[in-house]
Design a protein around this nucleic acid. Structure first.
Length: 476
RNA sequence: GGUCCCAUCGUCUAGCGGUUAGGACGCCGCCCUCUCACGGCGGAAGCAGGGGUUCAAUUCCCCUUGGGACUACCA
């Protein structure tokens, strides 16, 4: 039997990091086993499901690099099968019609709470023999004694007494199936062999196990992974900041970093911190997933992202960065080609942690008017550098060959030697002149990326600035 | 409240009866250095508490405490 795993989100919003990790673990394990990874959209609640959210889930998975096999199954399309299952259970005596109204149920729970009892359905309609012409729901007749157990792939043996489980609704009064019925029918129909989902489903698993048995279906193996918590220890939610994978995409994180980070939440492989996707697939084993919840720490993601920035293939990175700029509408107001952008990525990737930061710190490459940092200018563009800076300008102007970092090095150092200057004494003024800032990539790289004409223009402007200071036109 | 799950540095984690309790992020210091980074080296930082079991418990068991999940005609 080939392993078949699935990710079954309900389309009520973007793909959030918790769902992303569930998808990732299913995907990893499916690939690890050489099986299939399937998608099912749990849209039986037509009210809350939106087409936009379906799109968002597909896009989110695609961004993360998780591919799925076969066409995604939309659960609402299987309503007939779900009804048939409910009918079968009614027929076999495993379920019954319940005519209690919502307000009656509300009142029932209210009273139970008042008595300090567990609020649950009391089985009032369980034994009624009449069949009034009233709206009804189909309820499952949960065994009243004994217990139900299963061996969780992650948590081990799980047991609960049957009387903790009340008679759940299988089919609503409008004839639509509820979650638990639909899940069981569809997992069986999809021949799912391993159900790996969040911890929040353990209670459902007990109920679903009863349904599998009542329906005479083969049970899959179950694994419940611990939830992801926010940095305050509570279940990750909006108030913890970005929760949608798209937000991370927009913040300039790499899918590879996100995958690595998510994978390491609850799972580890010795002391290994960085994984290629193939390594992840080879090493991942659902049995090794830890059972305690973990906190989604942004700092760790940052460091991982920086690592992937520094260690990924430069061309791939350049493509991704170009896409990022495009997606975020960040304009590059200079004629350029892919190799120019590649130089920027090469120069910036050691000093940035995300594409967002990379873009922000590359403004002096992207745009022509320079924003001069006052403090940096005041500190580094002083009259003493007038001569060396002018010589640099002239040396660059005199160079016939393109201003590559390599080509610029020699004349630059000649000026240093002539004036008996340390590297920093000329590099910093030049840096401020060319970038407007005291912080940038190496000065030779900056010169190369900036290009001859812009270098000369900017040096001229800086020279003029220094001259004005020298003549006292500017307060120094 | 009830049921279930969980508990090693601040965080992610290794550990699977005997370890100077390891790694990573973050933090601190030093080195490298044209700035910022990267990189290298070093440091501070942890077994929640209490009982057992055992020659020996971070490790096995129980209790306490603390977290979390579930408790719908949502999924």
């Amino acid at each position: 039997m080939t392993p078949r795993l699935r990710f079954a989100p309900s389309p009520t919003g973007d793909l959030h990091v918790g769902g992303a990790r569930t998808a990732l673990f299913n995907w990893l394990y499916a690939r690890h086993l050489g099986g299939q990874f399937l998608l099912r959209i749990e849209d039986t609640d037509r009210e809350r499901s939106t087409e936009h959210a379906v799109r968002a889930i597909f896009d989110g998975l695609t961004w993360l690099g998780l591919d799925w096999d076969e066409e995604p199954l939309f659960q609402h399309a299987r309503e007939a099968a779900h009804r048939a299952a409910a009918a079968q259970l009614l027929q076999s005596g495993h379920a019954y019609r319940c005519y209690c109204t919502t307000s009656e149920l509300e009142q029932m729970r209210e009273e139970q709470r008042a008595h300090g009892a567990k609020p649950r359905y009391n089985g009032r309609c369980r034994h009624r023999s009449d069949a009034p012409d009233l709206p009804f729901v189909v309820r499952f007749k949960t065994p009243s004694d004994g217990s139900i157990a299963f061996d969780d792939l992650i948590k081990g043996r799980m047991v609960v007494a049957n009387d903790e489980l009340d008679d759940l609704v299988l089919q609503r009064s409008d004839g639509t199936p509820t979650y638990n019925l639909a899940v069981v029918c569809d997992d069986a129909a999809m021949r799912i062999t391993h159900v790996i989902r969040g911890d929040d489903h353990v209670n459902n698993t007990f109920r679903q196990l009863h349904l599998y048995r009542a329906l005479g279906l083969t049970e899959p193996a179950f694994g419940h992974m611990p939830l992801i918590l926010g940095d305050d220890g509570a279940k990750l939610s909006k108030r913890h900041g970005a929760t949608s994978v798209f937000e991370y995409a927009r913040l300039g994180y790499l899918p590879a970093a996100m995958r690595n980070h998510l994978a390491r939440l609850g799972w580890s492989h010795g002391d290994q911190e960085h994984f290629t996707t193939d390594e992840l697939i080879a090493a991942f084993d659902i049995h090794e997933v830890g059972s305690s919840p973990s906190v989604f720490a942004l700092q760790k993601l940052d460091s991982l992202n920086g690592w992937y920035l520094r260690n990924s293939d430069l061309d791939e990175l350049t493509d991704l960065f170009a896409k990022y700029l495009d997606r975020e509408g960040i304009a590059v107001e200079v004629d350029h080609d892919r190799s120019w952008l590649r130089q920027i990525v090469a120069a910036q990737r050691e000093r940035t942690t995300t594409f967002k930061e990379m873009a922000e710190k590359s403004g002096y490459f992207f745009r022509t008017p320079l924003e001069l940092d006052e403090e940096a200018a005041h500190k580094h563009l002083r009259p003493v550098v007038l001569e060396p800076l002018r010589e640099l300008r002239d040396a660059l102007a005199a160079l016939d060959a393109p201003l590559t970092a390599e080509a610029v090095k020699t004349p630059f150092e000649a000026i240093l030697a002539r004036h008996e200057l340390k590297m920093g004494k000329l590099a910093q003024p030049a840096r401020v002149a060319l970038t407007g800032s005291a912080i940038s990539p190496g000065i030779f790289d900056v010169i190369e990326i900036t290009g001859k004409q812009r270098c000369l223009d900017r040096l001229d402007a800086a020279l003029a600035y220094v001259e004005r200071r020298a003549t006292g036109e500017l307060a120094s």
